[in-house]
Design a protein around this nucleic acid. Sequence first.
DNA 1: ACGAGTTCAGCAAGCGCTTTCTACTGCCGA
DNA 2: TCGGCAGTAGAAAGCGCTTGCTGAACTCGT
Lengths: 351, 351
Amino acid sequence: MTVTLADVAARAQVSPATVSRVLNGNYPVAASTRERVLRAVDELDYVLNGPASALAAATSDLVGILVNDIADPFFGIMASAIQAEICGPGGRAGGERLAVVCNTGGSPERELTYLTLLQRQRAAAVVLTGGAVEYAPHAAAVAAKLRKLTEAGTRVVLCGRPPAPGTDAVALTFDNRGGARRLTEHLLGLGHRRLGYIAGPEERTTTRHRLEGHRAALRAAGVEDDPRWTVHGRYDRQSGHEATLELLRRDPSLTAVVAANDSVALGACAALRESGLRIPEDVSVAGFDDLPFSVDAVPSLTTVRLPLAEAGARAGRIAMGRAEAPPGGVASVQGELMVRGSSGVPRSVGT
Amino acid sequence: MTVTLADVAARAQVSPATVSRVLNGNYPVAASTRERVLRAVDELDYVLNGPASALAAATSDLVGILVNDIADPFFGIMASAIQAEICGPGGRAGGERLAVVCNTGGSPERELTYLTLLQRQRAAAVVLTGGAVEYAPHAAAVAAKLRKLTEAGTRVVLCGRPPAPGTDAVALTFDNRGGARRLTEHLLGLGHRRLGYIAGPEERTTTRHRLEGHRAALRAAGVEDDPRWTVHGRYDRQSGHEATLELLRRDPSLTAVVAANDSVALGACAALRESGLRIPEDVSVAGFDDLPFSVDAVPSLTTVRLPLAEAGARAGRIAMGRAEAPPGGVASVQGELMVRGSSGVPRSVGT
DNA sequence: ACGAGTTCAGCAAGCGCTTTCTACTGCCGA
DNA sequence: TCGGCAGTAGAAAGCGCTTGCTGAACTCGT
């Protein structure tokens, strides 16, 4: 039925061992023999049995990429960069790795399930992207899994995610706190004193860090931080829309809205506009991440650019062992403040 | 070192066969025995060896999802829906399937490489999404691969992709032609007579079909279709930006720009605005797909909504054998015209 | 011209699991 | 009381590949 190594060997008049060695290319095989084998492979249209070879070699060429939401370009861009780095630039067939992205949907259980599945597949490496959930039991379970994976020889890299204490996982962490702080400082510098903040889901590290940066900036400037000016929601536009209406209801005198990310900011813009407010004349808006569509928003969005593709590429290289891990296993990746049209001097100051 | 089935068997005082049967649950095992085994599994923290079981059982729980560009929400949304359907709603651990998305980057070679890799892994199913490349030799190679996969028992589903002749692959095809036609008809109905068209890459089926729909509408209305009014580019905003400037240079009197998709349309809007043109007063703009950000554009984008999530979910269900394939193995999925703020009556007519 | 060193191919022992076939234990009906 | 039949567990034969080890055929240095 299916062609096996033995069939190829028979056709090429060599032993199965030789065929295997030709295919893996890590053992001296005479050129003439090699060619004969390759021809046989070609003629029979042979495809290696992955599970069998993974079993025998006790390794696999699978690399897992875990993302919270594959439909969100934030993750898409990182995943794309990671995958490109793992599979190599060309479309080369030999020695390829299967980089697979697994969508956890932000669910802790799914995250663990995927980790188990990857462990089961004896994955060569695993890259976890995006913020982690801070629920302690879950964090512990994940850490335990990561430790197991590392023990089993799987390389583990965290990209855009805080370090996992108690594991050997390499972490490329986004400086969400610093970026958020600089962003809010920018708004404060323009004269804003009543800033609404639309945060992400409560239990995410990303949410907490960005919020902390925001508050740190307020505190440093001695500006009031009314708890009613902070609303939590999801990381999508609809959430931004709803949260903005809520903020407006709580305090119509806000002069700026800082959003957890660009999608949320876009939703916020829509809500403000529907409420008859101009951006930035009446209310300034700021996002985070600088996704591709943010520069095209009207007005273009003031935000913090995160080097998603670069970080992803680096994570991919580390996962493949093609780049050094940063000293201490942890590197902080900075965001860059992008001042654009959606932020301006508040009315009260401007006039 | 690593815990194996035999270790569990020893601990539970049963044979490896029994442990296997408990884990797979397809053979009667006495309740008391089962419980003893499960306890042992738990105590030893045993994780099944995927490759070994795939080898022995000659099947695997891997499902591949091929996408052209994971960073593009168009694919992200479909992939998300497919994956959700495949992995089931909960984060359940038992009997899970590993749904993996593979990013071809639009490269035919990569597409084939991934198909081979999935074949190598003896994937349970494969879903190919998005437009296909029309280069005949490549199409033939893909068709051959798909045939091989089907023969090997892998279920193959095409989602948002035209049928692959000569294969048994089930196809859920987007009616790009019809959608594009209705979109252009809408613009014609508003009075537009000089319409620029920004097409995608030449060799894609999606590109061709949308363009054909556009032209069919023009022809039916007896409207001129100057070849200089069509520009090809990539499916991203930058391409839309460049192409729009090019169109404007070729003929500044255009009153509408139809883009290959929403991202391109956004780039077009930016270019028009930079050129001092108002939307839709001076030039109307239309996109395609209705991605989440399109409704938030300013003005909101007139476009054709494609039920990406629904189609993905259906494709996922078919791939899992949880839904019937459509009669004939092919279904056409309709797009819905979304008339919004970016399209309006052209000046010449309005005044 | 002969032993040492080098190359290259084959043998065979697994890798960890699934599954068929066999075997044992009760328990029922006759 | 005995044949037979559920019900349940075990023995063992692979699944298709990799790789350590063995050994044959050469190449050389002396």
